[in-house]
Design a protein around this nucleic acid. Structure first.
Lengths: 248, 248
DNA sequence: ACAAAAGTGTTTTTTATACACCCATGC
DNA sequence: GCATGGGTGTATAAAAAACACTTTTGT
């Protein structure tokens, strides 16, 4: 946007070469559709330039008096009503020229993006459609070319999800409150890929750890023996907190 | 600093509530003194306000046209001449009021800090003393109260170091080119704390992996049998790259 | 000769992996 | 009754943990 007028001179207090920034926050919000066993990301259609009409990660620019995390929660709250929520910072992307709003000459603002990684329960997350702009859960395998460097950010988030799954109980942030052990196993296979472990071994390992509470309630999905519904017992998990854990 | 004049009005293009940022980069630079078995951080004495005369992590503000990583490397290059170098992004701290240069009212710039995590070899790292301001390696146990939120940033970096040590070959970035297996073991104990593993088991596990090359050269440190000097063989390590690894 | 540091080996315990098989339901 | 998904058990291989012992140096 070379047409944009330089909107300010540098004050005397600044070194003449310091960059001025606007800071954006972009969220990589994952969920899992347990019915169809699909890993989903939340995407929104951009309703203003740049990249008007293109899909992107939900994001916003940080406002005065607002912390980065506040901003991350704000986007989330604007897009979905979710009961549960897991949120953590992902990575900060800040090279020059990563945002087309930056003027070609080196005056004017740089745009820096702090990305956050979030997990929500699919069934409990209600999307807030504002009528005009689109918002949708995309299966990870079908994600189109996104605005900005968002495909890269998403890839980064996906890697984080895979890693976290192996050593922390994030799975229970995406699964419904009550789930079967197959649900859990399927989640692991959809995220980590097949053959990460034998079902029977996965099962006994997890049960031996003792933080999965059997509700004795049975649920039948079509043919086959009905499965027990389990619940993640945070109390029983406490001793494992901050300790190296192996789920896989 | 309420005395600072509001240096610009918001242009019409801005939402009236967007925050303007300066972006700083702070480095948590670790090294290990193999002789004395001490984990060290590089600290610099601040030579300008705020926090004039107080120790802090080496940092700088990002300049025009400069990427975050560029800025991180720039600080590093200004402070030490190092042959080897490991650098990765750590975390971004960006709450309001984290920097006293922010004006109390909500006008004026916010200061955001992207922290980086670096490892250098103690013997090969030559500190660049600029005469006036101080610069020093501090044993982690003796770090004083630092400027800004740098104690928190340091704590964050330390945690990263401990984690990385367990599953990636970062140890060889801090150790000298040639090292004994005791050096390696001592490094692990100083960072991870005692009793993380038996020396003999640690030893055989690492050797079995096959990426530690025995140079057959012996060194004697006082009494006792002389130790073999080993070298990290990056080629032989390649197959383990990106795969889950266990060093502990 | 003996203490100190380096290096090797053996035993035991625990955990991972691979399967084989039984159970309860829908059709 | 048999296919289907759920659940249990066992046999084997591999790795972790514990620890006893040998080797080579300085003093």
């Amino acid at each position: 946007m070379p047409g944009r007028a330089p909107k300010k001179a540098h004050s005397v207090a600044d070194s003449p070469t310091l960059a001025d920034f606007k800071v954006g926050v972009d969220n990589v919000i994952f969920s899992v559709d347990t019915e169809q066993n699909r890993l989903l990301v939340l995407l929104v259609m951009r309703d203003e330039p740049p990249f008007l009409g293109q899909w992107s990660l939900p994001g916003t620019l940080v406002q005065q008096g607002e912390s980065l995390e506040d901003a991350a929660y704000r986007i989330l709250a604007e897009k979905i009503r979710a009961n549960n929520l897991y949120l953590e910072q992902l990575y900060t992307f800040g090279g020059p020229q990563r945002d087309p709003r930056e003027s070609a000459d080196s005056y004017g603002d740089r745009y820096l993006a702090v990305s956050y990684f979030a997990l929500v329960r699919f069934a409990e997350a209600e999307l807030i459609a504002d009528g005009v702009s689109g918002i949708a859960w995309y299966p990870l395998s079908q994600v189109p070319v996104l605005a900005f460097d968002h495909n890269q950010v998403l890839e980064y988030g996906h890697r984080r999800l895979r890693n976290k799954l192996e050593y922390s109980p994030v799975a229970f942030e995406v699964l419904p409150e009550l789930f079967t052990l197959s649900d859990l196993y399927q989640l692991y296979t959809t995220v980590l890929g097949d053959n990460f472990s034998d079902y029977s071994n996965f099962r006994s390992r997890l049960l031996k750890l003792g933080f999965l509470a059997d509700t004795r309630v049975k649920v039948s999905r079509g043919a086959g023996r009905p499965a027990s519904l389990y619940r993640f017992d945070a109390e029983a998990f406490a001793p494992y907190k901050d300790k190296p854990m192996v789920f896989i």
